[in-house]
């Protein structure tokens, strides 16, 4: 379904040339719940953004149903990302001047998967996310847990095939984190493909499969220890 073939990614960060990924190959199967673990700066987020069509690899290919995502033009890739991929970030990344309802609405509009005025669908989703009483609130008026639920609603409203979640519980207290993880598990049970980046091995264990990334290299790690290099 979503495949990385020999991905190498270098970039300039604070005037230094950094190699984020070194010849990474990975396949995400349809309906799979995959976790990617690794220490800070190991390349987890870089891999996630590259998989999601947000950043072209220096070498190698990202394949979606055997088509190279980065060989498409920018418009086609943006449209694919809008329809197919739902991102969830650690810092929520909500539009600060829009209300909860508008944040979700704009995500639906940009995806092209539904009419922006499809309010019934949006309201049902927000009710499921326990945000019905916060529709007109701006992000800064919400708790961090509520903000992450809005971010998740943004990702889900367009009914994406793949959810790419980058440390979605990193800023949350344990109870709220448990709520978000429960939501992700429920989504997986509904058949969604989920790639979860986390540095927490306990959370990684919730996934069907875990890979570990260390200094830009991918290791098979179905348990907590670094295992075979992939």
């Amino acid at each position: 379904m979503l495949k990385a073939e020999n991905i190498r990614k270098t970039f300039i960060h604070r005037h230094n040339n950094v190699t984020g990924l070194k010849s990474v190959s990975l396949e995400v199967k349809e309906g799979e719940f995959l976790s990617i673990t690794g220490p800070s700066g190991s390349g987890k987020s870089t891999l996630l953004l590259t998989l999601g069509g947000m950043s072209a690899p220096t070498e190698g290919k990202i394949l979606w149903n055997d088509e190279s995502v980065y060989h498409w033009d920018q418009a086609k890739r943006a449209a694919w990302r809008g329809k197919t991929i739902g991102f969830v970030f650690q810092t929520f990344n909500l539009i600060p001047y829009l209300s909860v309802l508008e944040n979700v609405r704009i995500a639906l509009k940009l995806s092209g998967n539904g009419a922006a005025s499809d309010s019934t669908e949006i309201l049902e989703l927000l009710e499921k996310m326990k945000l019905s009483d916060r529709l007109q609130h701006n992000p800064k008026e919400l708790s961090v847990g509520q903000q992450q639920r809005v971010a998740l609603a943004q990702a889900l409203v367009k009914n994406p095939q793949v959810i790419l979640a980058d440390e979605p519980t990193g800023n949350l207290d344990p109870d709220t984190a448990a709520e978000i993880l429960a939501l992700l598990l429920a989504l997986h049970n509904e058949g969604k493909t989920i790639v979860l980046v986390t540095h927490d091995p306990h959370i990684a264990k919730l996934a069907q499969r875990n890979v570990r990334i260390i200094e830009g290299e991918l290791w098979c790690a179905n348990n907590a220890d670094p295992g075979l290099r992939l």
Binding site: A75, R81, I106, Q154
Partner: peptide
């Protein structure tokens, strides 16, 4: 960046 992640095109 957020809008692009949601699928916004440059145009």
């Amino acid at each position: 960046g957020i809008l692009m992640a949601m699928g916004a095109q440059s145009s």
